[in-house]
């Protein structure tokens, strides 16, 4: 049972590029069965920008699932933006999961949310010391715990994808300054995918990173930030043993 997953993140839509992304999504149903968006859909996280996102990605001929990114939180309107996207038929993951069923019976489970930072094993922040530091690391830990539960619940699907804004691994950050790695992701996100099992982990956020990596447990990771891809969306075929089959 195969499925073609289109993915992109960090499109950073605003009034100045209104309508331009929609053009690039023409014919997406010929290339993919589902579109996953890895957050940072807006620049400032305003409701006005949220409406533009809903216009550009709403009503497509394939199901659309998204998470929000740090930019989408900037104006404290993330709930309003999420509701707008819900109304436009775009499924917003909030540290939970959803299942997409294709006409041929293939079932894709998608779990995730924004994610957060903290760094990577051996070089990461700890829940120790000042309350601000405990809060920073605790936020990621709580998110990862919810992802464990969300993935556990996806027990009757053909494929499982984790969708995040922040990265689960250093692999796909290559090209970013080492000093900012703790602000780009956390190994706790990878740990959730490795413990519960997933076929693919998609993220954005790292504009200067690289597309391809793998978690410590062997889950394939793809950084789909638009500046990394340089194309409207990437397409990953899951379950296609024969390269020609997708």
């Amino acid at each position: 049972m195969k499925i073609r997953v289109a993915a992109v993140g960090d499109v950073h839509l605003g009034e100045d590029i209104r309508g331009r992304y929609r053009e690039k999504l023409q014919g997406i149903e010929e290339h993919a069965d589902v579109l996953l968006l890895a957050g940072d859909l807006t620049r400032h996280g305003t409701p006005a920008e949220g409406r533009i996102v809903a216009e550009e990605f709403g009503g497509l001929p394939v199901p659309v699932v998204t998470v929000l990114g740090n930019h989408d939180y900037h104006s404290d309107a993330e709930d309003e933006i999420g509701a707008m996207l819900d109304d436009a038929g775009i499924h917003v993951l909030r540290d939970d999961a959803t299942v997409i069923s294709l006409d041929d019976g293939t079932r894709l489970g998608v779990a995730g949310g924004k994610g957060f930072g903290g760094g990577f094993a051996g070089k990461c922040a700890s829940e120790f010391g000042e309350p601000q530091m405990k809060s920073f690391v605790g936020h990621t830990r709580e998110i990862a715990e919810r992802w464990h539960k969300a993935l556990k619940g996806l027990d009757d699907v053909d494929h499982r994808v984790v969708l995040s804004h922040y990265s689960p691994t250093k692999d796909t950050l290559a090209g970013e300054p080492l000093e900012i790695y703790p602000f780009l992701g956390s190994y706790l996100l990878a740990e959730a995918a490795d413990a519960e099992g997933a076929d693919l982990f998609l993220h954005g956020h790292a504009h200067h990173g690289t597309e391809k990596g793998v978690t410590p447990g062997g889950v394939r990771v793809r950084n789909v930030a638009l500046p990394v891809l340089g194309r409207a969306y990437a397409v990953y075929c899951l379950g296609g043993e024969d390269p020609e089959s997708c």
């Binding site: 073609r4 194309r231 409207a232 990437a234 296609g240």
Partner: peptide
């Protein structure tokens, strides 16, 4: 200024 191309070749995983 970023030039955004079409989707290009898919990757089978």
């Amino acid at each position: 200024v970023m030039e955004v191309r079409g989707p290009g070749e898919e990757e089978t995983l």
